[in-house]
Each structure stands twice: as C-alpha cells, then as structure tokens.
Design a protein around this nucleic acid. Structure first.
Length: 813
DNA sequence: AGAGCGCGGGG
DNA sequence: GTGTACGCGCTCT
C-alpha cells in the first residue's frame, strides 16, 4: 500500500465484470502522469411514492427488460432529502451500472404516484460531488498499482482524502493545428482532400517545443520541419508526438469542429486507428456538438471556451483566431494566402516553407491563448469541480446548473429534474417582458458613456430572497411585494438558490479584498469566474431547460431591477446627462457638456446610495455611436447598435450580416457605411456610396463574384423537404452532370426572371458578367444591410432606391 | 404564421 | 450525457 498525492484533471468510467469503476486521470505531485481507479461508488437514483416502504417491496421484486440485459435493483434504502424547502422521504435505488438506471426508472414511473429523481444526473459528476473531489485540487490516495493496459500507471484506490489547499500549477500543454489540401476555398471535403501538414507547439521547461510534420520534401533550414513519406505516416507521427510529449492538456482552435473530425475521416481512410486515449482505445466521436473528448488527456478547444465564456468581455464581434488573438495577445496571424496552399503544394513545393511557418504560428498563437486563459479556465474548473474538457464546453446555463448541483449535494438538497420535452415546450412559450427599460432613441450620437449594472441581478436575488422555495410562502404574505407583480418571497427563511448566490457574492468580495494591493493573476481569474457565475444566475432562472427554472423568480428580478434602474436614469437626467439607451444591465448616456470625469463622479454618487453589493460600473467612453431601431418588432427595438471606442475600434452589436450566405457586395457595403459614418462622421458620403453601388448594380457594372451567394448543402440532396435556392441550384448541377455531394458549398447568383427566388437562382458557372437581377440584390441584400442605419438618420428606402440623384430627408418608416 | 434550414469556427 | 435542448434570420409553404 502506497500513498500518493495526485491532481485529478479528467474522469470517466468503465464497466468490468458488471461493476462500475471510476478512472481519475491527472498528474502526481512528482510531475508524473497517473490514473486512479475507484470501484467504491455505486450508481443510484431516487424514487418518491405515497408510501416508500411499499415501493421498496415492489422494487425488490422488480425485473425489467433493459436494452441488453435484464435489470434489477442492486439494493435500496429509505432516506431523506430536502425538496423545495421541505423534507421528503425517498427510496434510494442502487444499480450495478449507470445504464441500468434508465430502464428501472422508466418502469417505476409507470406505477401511479411514483416519481423519480436524479436519474438524469451524470454518473461521473455525481461521483465527484459525493466524494467532494474538485478537479484540479490535490487529493491523497492510498492504493496499489494494478496491472491494466494503460499508457499511465493505474492505482486501485482504497482510501482517498482531500487537500483543498493545493491546486495544480502549470499543467503541461500541447497545442496543434492541421493544414489541409483545399482548392475550393472554404469548403471542407475531408473524404477527398488530404492533410498536408500538422504543427505542434509546447514547452519543455524553458525551451519551446516546435514541430511541423509534412509529407512533401523541399529545401529548408528550419530544423523543426520534419518530412515523412505520406499522409498515413503523418497521422501516425501525430499520435506519437502526443504520446511522447505527455500533455495534460491538448489544445487547438476549433479542433472540435475541424481538426479532429478531419483527422477522423483521414485516419479511417488510411486505416489507422486514432488510439490516443490513455487506455489505448480509439477516439470516440460522439454526436456533433458534444466535443471531442480524449480519455485521460484534457482536450481543450480554446474556441469553445472563448465562445461560451470569454467572448463576453471581448470587443471583437467575430471569433476567428486572428481577431481573438489580436485582441487578447496583441498578435495576429501570419500574412499568408492560404488559398494558394494547394497550388503551391502541387506546383511549387519549394515554396512550402512559408506555409509551414504559418501552420506553426497558428499552433503557437493557440498555445499562448490557452496559456493566457488557463487561470480563468482552471478557476472555473475549481469552482464547478468538473473536468476542464467539460467546463470549457459548457454554456453559462450548464455552468450555473453544475455549480448549484454541487451545493445541493452538500446541503442534502434533492436535485430538480431536467424538464421533459413537453415541459420545455410550454416554458418556451412563457416569455415575460420587462427587460428593456429605456428603448434606444434611434440616431447618431457623440460622446457616449456606457455604465454597466451587472452585479445588480445577483444582489437582488440574494437581498430579496428570490427562489422557488421562498416564493409565496405562508408566513410572509403581503410583505415586500415585488413591484407590479404582487409576488412575495419569504422573509423568515433563506431559500436554497438565494443562499447559493449569496455564497458566490461573498466569496467574490473576499477575493476582492485579497486583491487590494495584490495584482495576482489567479485572484483576478477567480474573481472573474465568480462574477461570471453570479451574473449568469438570473438568466438561468428564466432558461427553459433549467432544473431550477422559475418563471416568477426571473420576472421578479427584472421587476426589482427596473425600480433601481429607473431611479438611476432619472438621477442621470437630473445631473444633465442624456439617457440614450438602457437595457437590463447597461445604461448609455450622452455627455453633452459634461466630461468623462463628471460621469465617473455621478457613478460614485449612485454607488453610495445602492444597497448591499450592488454596483454601477464604468464600461467605457465612445466618441461616436449609432443606434438603430428594429422595425417589425413589438414592444420596442432590440439591441442593434455600433459604437466607435476611444481606441478607434468599432464595436458592432446586433447587425447579423457578416455571414457567408450573404453576397460580398452586401457585406462590404454595410461595413463601409458603418465605418464612414462612425469614423469619418460622413453620413452624406455613406449615403452617396450606397446610391453609387445601387447605380452600379443597375448598370450591371458589379462583378459576378461580388453578387455570388455561397450556401452549403448540409445534408444529401434527396433529404431536402424545403427547396431553397441553393438546393434548386444543386439539383440543376446534378442534372448537368456535375458532382453534387453533402457538405459542398453551392455558389449561385440570382438572375432576372419570374417566380420564386429559387427559380431565378443559377449556378455560378452558367452566369455571365452582368447577368444578375439588380433589383433582387438591391432589395434583398443591400437595403436590408443598410436601411435601418439610414432610417435612423432620416433617410428612407425610397431615397436610396430612387433613380433620381436627388437625396433628401425622408420619413421614418 | 410556421416549418425548415444555414450560420458560426476551421482550410 | 443514465442522451431531445443554441438563437437568429432567411426562404418557402
């Protein structure tokens, strides 16, 4: 028997001889990777009935036909949990394996009056919560080495204890990126196009680990470039490099959606198994969207973390590697024209070196991103307690939910079930208003200051005890009634959710206290993670798929918030600021003759009066901004604005046209218009520019490339019910003998003629210059992209479209 | 008005 | 996840 100190990072489970074993993967304090196996946690769920002892008898005799086996309960016990503030008697039903829970539960729920709980909680998560294990934090394990096929030593645990004070530092990170053969631009056809090179970037102590593997030889002095015979060997080397580097974390950018799925197809084609799991099994590609999880190695797709969590604090609107890296690291991509890679590969291999550099650079940038964001990711991991590979892929609602689930376990609270399909459907229809307090006054503004009210919501939940178990309590009717709504929340007993969020707020305050005079990165990251979670609570309450969904609670939060915000707004007006726009969490004011200092002073004043930890924050100063009203929407306009920051960046919100299935001409016109208006202040010029483009369209001077629309075929052609333009064009192509396959991008142009849009859609190769329907492009591409912008400035569509060169102020729609 | 569909990220 | 679950805006029906 030995005792080892161990930082677990990843968890999964396996069935052996009918029994369930948990495998914890991580690093020992010695730095060596290891695996802890634990067979001590038996899967279970709960059932509730009028009389649980009767139910217990029934369960004892129950045999259910499962999918692969006859299932029966392993054992049962009667126990208590708190549900909606009340103690409940429950039957705890154990099974040999997690998969046996579902058939048993389904059978039990056919009995009248029987309801099951926690059958929908993931086994590995339940294990971690029950054992109190927080991934990333040290545990002490007593156990013995066992003989098992594995790339790291496996210890069978007999005892475990926690050491929460120690958490993992500097996990070993390896970043990778592939480049593929691609003649068709953005299309991805892994079945046909091979992987040309793969780059790695990591650190060996102080020395960078760099490698690019490719299978076409050329002269080079770069010693990190390694040549192999063919793509098959490249894939084998890919596996070897990972195995030799022994990373805790394997990272990349959009590796869930591109690199790994691509590798999967190519490896299959080459008959190579992608057995990079630490137990030598092959990579398991689940359903799309679930992410690629590697057994024992934490695969972190940095893009996922940024999209789900980190992008909230970013200026950039697009989340491509280049924009993200330049904002976070101040480092862009290498300036290489990737369109040329296939051509150079075929015709001028001697010029491949710059593509290898480019490849390596992407891996390097991704490594740096991962390193930079590691404190934030690890803090979230330690807060939620789940693997980094899962936490980085969770949207805010699931982060919140998993945090609550841990607190629930600690306080003997029974988890609410996930809503069933019908329930979700019903919840979706139950929207509530009250989010927007001040509708944007459409227009172009100078000198805006933006304040943020974010911590208002969590504080309201805590201060007013907003929760499911406190709503309309019997003891406090009529006290502290929610404005406009008439609900009330208990004043006597703290609710479960309010106490959870209170814990988050006070934890954050402690961290902030520690941060005074201490610029520690870890503290900053912890504070950020706590704030993010707390701020997500309100959204969670109103989220249709939430376990602890509470419509009344979500409603109440905004109702209380309106009260606070309205007062702040009138104070701002009193002080001579013009309130331009405000929604639930932010407030935009125009400075007029005031200064930024005045605005900050005003903010301080407000903060003095705010109760508890509520706080108005200064978001920034924006020399110019344009607010656009969304027509065709009742109850006020939605967020749609563009701001010019004092650093000269343009921050666009709500303009959704930067997409591939819009023509180049529409995208560029919108971009140019916003730039000209915000940067140059030249509305007339922008207007004239659009008129000029419209004229050009009409006189057929616009190149076909600029009006081409790209749309991808997302499924086999036969499976389409709705025949959109791209489907119709694909059919045409097929009829003409072109190859048409799932995943291809159909390029087409809308031409003149009669009927539906699709009847006028023609494949690009059949369209000559000038052969497009100008009115379609004007009406369906240019006008939608810019009309709302001009509308707020007093121009209307007529002005844009009319043949006359005269321009003038028109009516609003 | 409702259903069906593509987009994002990646080369 | 012990498997239904992104949200928006377009086009067709």
């Amino acid at each position: 028997m030995e005792e080892i100190r161990f930082y677990p990072l990843d968890i999964n489970y396996k069935i052996q001889e009918g029994k369930t074993y948990v495998y914890l993967y991580g690093r020992r304090d010695s730095g060596k990777r290891a695996c802890i196996k634990d067979g001590s946690f038996i899967p279970y769920f709960f059932a509730e009935a009028g009389d649980v002892t009767v139910l217990q008898e029934i369960v004892r005799g129950l045999k259910v036909e499962g999918r692969y086996e006859v299932v029966r309960a392993l054992k049962t016990e009667i126990t208590e949990r708190i549900y909606r503030g009340k103690v409940r008697n429950l039957l705890k039903i154990y099974t040999n394996t997690p998969k046996q829970i579902s058939p048993l539960r389904k059978e039990l729920e056919t009995f009248p009056g029987v309801k099951c709980y926690e059958h929908d909680v993931k086994y590995t998560h339940n294990y971690l919560r029950e054992k109190g294990i927080i991934l990333g934090r040290q545990i002490k394990v007593k156990g013995e080495l066992v003989n098992e096929r594995s790339k790291v030593p496996v210890w069978m645990a007999s005892e475990m204890s926690l050491d929460e004070s120690e958490s993992i530092k500097d996990p070993r990170i390896l970043s990778f990126d592939i480049e593929t053969y691609n003649k068709e631009g953005k299309v991805m056809i892994p079945e046909r196009n091979p992987i040309l090179m793969v780059a790695f970037y990591g650190m060996d102590g102080e020395v960078p680990f760099k490698k690019v593997i490719t299978w076409k030889k050329f002269e080079t002095k770069k010693n990190y470039i390694e040549f192999v015979e063919d793509e098959g060997i490249l894939i084998k080397r890919f596996k070897q490099v990972i195995e030799e580097y022994k990373p805790d974390i394997l990272t990349g950018y959009f590796t869930d959606g591109f690199d790994f799925p691509y590798l999967e197809v190519r490896a299959k084609k080459q008959r190579i198994s992608l057995d990079i799991n630490l137990d030598y099994s092959s990579l398991n590609f689940g359903k799309e969207g679930t992410g690629v999880l590697i057994r024992g190695i934490s695969h972190v797709d940095i893009f996922q973390f940024i999209r789900n969590v980190y992008s909230k604090g970013l200026e950039t609107n697009t989340l491509d590697l280049n924009s993200v890296a330049s904002e976070i690291l101040n480092e862009g991509k290498k300036d290489v024209d990737l369109d040329n890679l296939a051509k150079v590969w075929d015709e001028k291999p001697e010029e491949l070196e710059e593509f290898c550099e480019y490849n390596l650079h992407d891996a390097y940038v991704t490594y740096e991103l991962c390193l930079k964001l590691m404190p934030e990711m690890l803090e979230l991991v330690k807060l939620i307690g789940l693997p980094i590979s899962e936490v980085t892929r969770m949207p805010f609602s699931r982060l919140v939910e998993n945090y609550i689930l841990r607190r629930a376990k600690e306080t003997n609270v029974l988890a609410a079930n996930r809503p069933a399909y019908d329930e979700i459907k019903e919840r979706r229809t139950k929207t509530y208003k009250g989010a927007y307090v001040v509708e944007p006054k459409p227009g172009l503004y100078d000198n805006l200051v933006v304040f943020d009210f974010r911590s208002l919501y969590p504080t309201i939940i805590a201060a007013h005890n907003v929760g499911l178990d406190t709503l309309r309590c019997e003891c406090c009717e009529g006290k502290d009634v929610v404005p406009e709504l008439g609900y009330w929340y208990c004043k006597e007993k703290k609710g479960f959710l309010p106490s959870v969020i209170e814990g988050l707020i006070s934890r954050r305050l402690r961290v902030k206290e520690m941060m005074k005079g201490n610029k520690d990165e870890l503290l900053k990251a912890r504070s950020m993670a706590l704030k993010y979670l707390a701020n997500s609570f309100y959204g969670y309450l109103g989220f249709f798929a939430a376990r602890w969904y509470c419509w009344e609670c979500a409603q109440s939060v905004t109702a209380y918030a309106r009260d606070y915000i309205q007062r702040t707004m009138s104070k701002a007006e009193e002080r001579g600021f013009e309130v331009v726009y405000g929604d639930t969490d932010s407030l935009f004011v125009k400075l007029n003759d005031k200064s930024v200092e005045d605005a900050k002073e005003f903010m301080e004043e407000i903060n003095i009066d705010l109760p508890g930890q509520m706080e108005l924050e200064y978001e920034g100063f924006f020399p110019k901004g344009i607010f656009v009203a969304l027509k065709s929407r009742e109850g006020g306009a939605k967020k749609k604005y563009a701001l010019l920051s004092d650093k000269g960046d343009i921050k666009i919100t709500g303009f959704e046209f930067v997409r591939r299935n819009w023509s180049e001409i529409a995208k560029s016109v919108q971009e140019r218009v916003l730039n000209q208006i915000l940067r140059e202040g030249d509305v007339e010029g922008a207007f004239d520019y659009v008129k000029k483009i419209i004229k050009k369209l009409r006189s057929k001077e616009v190149e076909i490339d600029k009006v081409m629309i790209h749309t991808q075929l997302q499924k086999p052609l036969e499976e389409y019910d709705a025949i959109g333009p791209h489907v119709k064009v694909a059919r045409d192509m097929l009829a003409k003998g072109y190859e048409v396959r799932e995943g291809m991008v159909v390029e087409y142009v809308i031409c003149e003629g009669k009927g539906l849009v699709r009847d006028r859609a023609k494949m690009i190769s059949e369209v000559k210059e000038g052969d497009y329907d100008a009115e379609y492009y004007i009406g369906h591409q240019i006008i939608p992209a810019v009309s709302s912008i001009f509308a707020v400035l007093g121009y209307n569509e007529e002005d844009l479209v009319s043949e006359s060169s005269q321009k003038g102020l028109g009516d609003f729609f």
